[in-house]
Every structure is written in C-alpha cells, then in structure tokens.
C-alpha cells in the first residue's frame, strides 16, 4: 500500500514536471510581454490541479490497462494464426476509432465551409453536411487501410521506410493537382486522426505483434503504425479534393 502510494506520488511529481514548461511559457508572456494580470487566477489554479491529477491517472492507466490490452490481443491473434481475422481487426480498429474522432468531425465541418465558400460545392446546409460526412468516411477508411497495411508489413517484416517514402513521394506528386483550398486541410488531417486513446493501443498492438512473431524486432518492426495512419489521410483527402 505504502509503495503504491509512493509510486503514485512519483508519477504526480513527473506530471508536474511535464506541465512546468506550459506554466512558465504562459506566465512569461502574460506577465512580461503582455503585462496583464491573470483573469480568474483561482480557476486557472484549480484547472492546473485537474491537469496534473488527470495526466497522472492517465499514465497509471496506460501501464495497467491500455498497454496490456493491446499486447494481449496481439498475442492472442498471433496464437490463433488467422491472417484474415487479424487484418479485419486492424481495419476495424482504424476505421472505428477515426470515424467518431471529435477533432476529425471539427476539421471536416471546417473543410465543408471552405469548400462551399470557394464554390466547389453548393452553399446549402445539405451540401455541406454531405461533403463533411464523405470526408469523414474517407479519412476513416484511409486510417483503416493504413493499419491493415501496417499490420501486414509487421508480419512480413518489410522496412517501414519503403512505405513512408513512397507515401511522401505520392503526397508531393498529388499536391500540385489538388485544389489549393484542400491542401492545408489534407496536411492537417494527417495529424488529427490519431487520438490519445488510439495511440497507446495501436502502439502496444504493433510492438506486441513484433514481439510475438519469431524473427521480428519490436524496435524496427513494432513501430510505424501511427506513421502510416497519419500519412494515408493526406493522400486520400487530396484525391477526394481532386475528384469532387
């Protein structure tokens, strides 16, 4: 009990250290540069306590819950030995976690607004909603595909940089053809798809697979799923922009 408490306190101290740069930055600009008092200082302080406690609980939960879960599922799939089931799981995980991602919903609504103002689609509510919905489905499909391909790559032991470099070259090749309005959104879409719960789970899954399958190295083969999941949305969104 005492050692558990000591562990928790150590994590708490770690979280405070993680937040120190933000506190210093905000305080410096508020006091030295903008020379303004803090509005609602008491609320800010309570908020900071919440952030520290939240980060500590999250990290504790990672080690207890998300990491072992991803790892166990990787082992179970490897033991079962069904390629189809594993690939289906990878696709569903990518699609399922992305389609409801709030950051993505916000970005696609923004994109629909831009598209209608640029005259690409009609200015009606329905046109915007259907544009935003298709965009969301496409990004989710692309993340599903990314995880499917990424898991297959781990099984085969192919180097990740083949995929990433060809992906980059594809992005470079498509960019000049995509409408200027969509390029910024497409580039940002890559960053918003990977949420705080998906990342640890997917990382544990990849590393777990690489650890279970003989001949795979967790460092060279286990990582890379997140990179693929942030690359494919850019390509898919730009192609979507060209076609619509």
């Amino acid at each position: 009990m005492i050692s558990a408490l000591a562990d928790f306190l150590r994590l708490l101290a770690g979280s405070m250290r993680d937040l120190l740069p933000i506190i210093l930055t905000v305080a410096f600009f508020q006091i030295v540069v903008l020379q303004q008092p803090f509005p609602n200082l008491d609320e800010v302080l309570i908020g900071l306590v919440f952030v520290v406690v939240g980060l500590t609980l999250f990290i504790q939960g990672l080690e207890m819950g998300l990491f072992p879960l991803g790892n166990d599922m990787a082992e179970a799939f490897a033991r079962k030995g069904s390629l189809l089931a594993l690939l289906a799981f990878a696709f569903c995980l990518g699609f399922g976690t992305t389609v409801a991602e709030p950051a993505l919903i916000a970005v696609s609504a923004e994109a629909a607004k831009i598209a209608s103002e640029a005259g690409i689609i009609a200015t009606s509510e329905e046109a915007r909603a259907s544009y935003a919905n298709s965009l969301r489905i496409i990004v989710a499909l692309s993340v599903g595909m990314a995880l499917l391909v990424g898991v297959f790559r781990i099984l085969k032991g192919w180097p990740i940089y083949y995929f990433i470099i060809s992906g980059y070259l594809l992005v470079i090749a498509i960019t000049p053809f995509a409408p200027a309005e969509i390029v910024g959104i497409a580039y940002d879409a890559g960053g918003v798809t990977t949420s705080t719960i998906t990342v640890p789970l997917v990382t544990a899954l990849g590393v777990g697979l690489a650890q279970t399958i003989r001949g795979r190295n967790p460092m060279t083969d286990g990582f890379g799923l997140i990179a693929l999941a942030s690359l494919t949305p850019m390509i898919f969104v730009m192609i979507f922009g060209i076609l619509v």
């Binding site: 406690v53 939240g54 980060l55 500590t56 609980l57 999250f58 990290i59 504790q60 939960g61 990672l62 080690e63 207890m64 819950g65 998300l66 072992p68 879960l69 705080t196 719960i197």
Partner: peptide
C-alpha cells in the same frame, strides 16, 4: 481498472 483510470484521467 486501468481503462477506467485512462478515461477518468483524460
């Protein structure tokens, strides 16, 4: 319990 921590923490 770990997953609950993750959700509560977030």
């Amino acid at each position: 319990v770990g997953l609950l921590y993750v959700l509560l923490g977030l």
